[in-house]
Every structure is written in structure tokens, then in C-alpha cells.
């Protein structure tokens, strides 16, 4: 098992694995997102309270969930790199980072857009919105740190430490923000009770969730493949790979 796992420390092997996985992931992810979104936006019943505007959850919830999972995935990759000194683990980490950041941004944007009809304003310092915003800052920090290094190997290690510092901090930030929010909550903020969701509303959400997960995985894998090529461009195995492709 370990032997099978550790072979992917080598860039060549990781490159092949990425190729295979991408082929499995990309088509199902697009299909699922298509089915889930159309079902959710067109066929799912209206919410009795919020009308049609609730439909944004089919984008908002999956992206919010994925933004956090992607950060954890990034931290796991960083830990693997740190403990076993895998070069490919850092490449995976840096491949995930912008994808996660985009997910965070989508969650923030859809959250704000949802807030407009509900709260009457684009932005309020709601606990979840605020933690998402800080999560976005954490992502941007990791990306900025990595791109500031000329030596990408060193940059990967530094960004990895930062990702781990972030992952230790995320729960603390999350709870502190939640606590801060309940403390400062005035009468101006109307909070909705979460009614239990009807199954015909839930199904498209679950489908979209899976679709988004596969999509994030597929894009990260593609990015990792590119990263491997970019970083290993001078190595003989890449050259022979390109020669094969040209035939």
C-alpha cells in the first residue's frame, strides 16, 4: 500500500496519474453540474418564503463547502510534502490554491447576491460571510507567498508552512467570528431560521455538490499536470514525452 502510494512522489508517475484521473473526472463533473443546475433552477419547487431567490443555494452551498474542503486538501498536501519531502505534494498544493480561492470568491459573490433581496443590502457583516472573506485572504496569502519566490521549490515549502498555519487558524477564526457576530448582532439583522429542506429541493443540491467536488478535483488535477510540466521542463523524461506526442 505504502509502496503504491509513495511512487507518486516521482513527478513522472504523478503526471501519469493526473492524466488518468482527469479523464475520469471531467466529463461526470460537467454532466452532474448541468443536471443539478437545470433541475435546481428550473424544475425544483419555489420556496414558500423566499420565492425564486432561494435557488442561488444550488451554486452558493456547493461552492462554500468546496472552498473549505479545498483548503483542507491543500493543507494535507502541504503536510505530505513537509513530512515525506515530496516535490509533487507541493505542486499539488499550489495547484489547488487558486481553485479554492475561486470557489471562495464564488461563495462570497453568490452570498452577497443572495443578501440583496433578503437583507436589502449587498454586504452585511454576517458571521459566515465574514469568515468566508477571511478564508479568501488566507488563500490569497498562500498564493502571493508562492508567487513571490523565484525558486519555486523553496516557494512551495514556504507556502506549505503558511497553509498549515492557516489550517490551524481556520477553526479559531471561524468560532471567534461567530462569537463576535452574536455579540454585536443588533436588531437590524434579520436572521432566517433554516427550515428543513424538502427532498425535491435537496436532490439537485446533492447532485450539484458532487458535481462541484469533481469539478474542483478535475481542474486541480489539470493544473497540477501543467505545474509538473512547467517545473520539470528541462528534465529528460518530459522531453521524451513530447517527442512521443509529436509522432
Amino acid at each position: 500500500m505504502w509502496k503504491w502510494f509513495s511512487q507518486y512522489a516521482k513527478p513522472e508517475k504523478a503526471y501519469q496519474l493526473c492524466g488518468t484521473l482527469f479523464r475520469w473526472f471531467w466529463l461526470p463533473s460537467l454532466l452532474l453540474i448541468l443536471v443539478g443546475t437545470v433541475w435546481g433552477l428550473v424544475f425544483a419547487p419555489q420556496d414558500y418564503q423566499q420565492g425564486d431567490s432561494f435557488r442561488i443555494i444550488y451554486i452558493h452551498v456547493p461552492s462554500a463547502l468546496l472552498s473549505m474542503s479545498a483548503y483542507v486538501a491543500m493543507a494535507v498536501a502541504a503536510l505530505v510534502g513537509l513530512v515525506w519531502q515530496w516535490r509533487t505534494a507541493y505542486m499539488a498544493m499550489i495547484a489547488i490554491a487558486p481553485v479554492g480561492a475561486v470557489m471562495t470568491f464564488i461563495a462570497l459573490f453568490t452570498g452577497a447576491a443572495w443578501g440583496k433581496p433578503m437583507w436589502g443590502t449587498w454586504w452585511i457583516w454576517d458571521a459566515r460571510l465574514t469568515s468566508q472573506l477571511i478564508l479568501l485572504f488566507l488563500y490569497l496569502g498562500v498564493i502571493a507567498l508562492y508567487s513571490a519566490f523565484d525558486d519555486k521549490q523553496q516557494g512551495g515549502k514556504a507556502a506549505g508552512i503558511m497553509a498549515l498555519v492557516g489550517v490551524v487558524n481556520i477553526p479559531i477564526i471561524h468560532y471567534s467570528v461567530e462569537w463576535w457576530n452574536t455579540l454585536h448582532q443588533g436588531a437590524t439583522i434579520t436572521k432566517f431560521d433554516k427550515p428543513s429542506i424538502a427532498p425535491e429541493m435537496l436532490w439537485p443540491l446533492l447532485i450539484n455538490l458532487l458535481g462541484f467536488a469533481l469539478f474542483v478535483a478535475a481542474v486541480s488535477i489539470k493544473r497540477m499536470r501543467n505545474e509538473i510540466v512547467r517545473r520539470e521542463i528541462h528534465r529528460p523524461w518530459i522531453k521524451s514525452l513530447f517527442l512521443e506526442n509529436e509522432k
Binding site: 523565484d150 519555486k152 521549490q153 520539470e232 521542463i233
Partner: peptide, 14 residues
């Protein structure tokens, strides 16, 4: 002091 099969990559150059 013995070094065995060292490889060093700096700025993605071997």
C-alpha cells in the same frame, strides 16, 4: 564525508 548520487535543482534548472 561522502556524497552519493546528489542531484540539485535550483530555479527549476538541474
Amino acid at each position: 564525508l561522502i556524497a552519493q548520487k546528489l542531484m540539485c535543482i535550483k530555479r527549476d534548472r538541474v
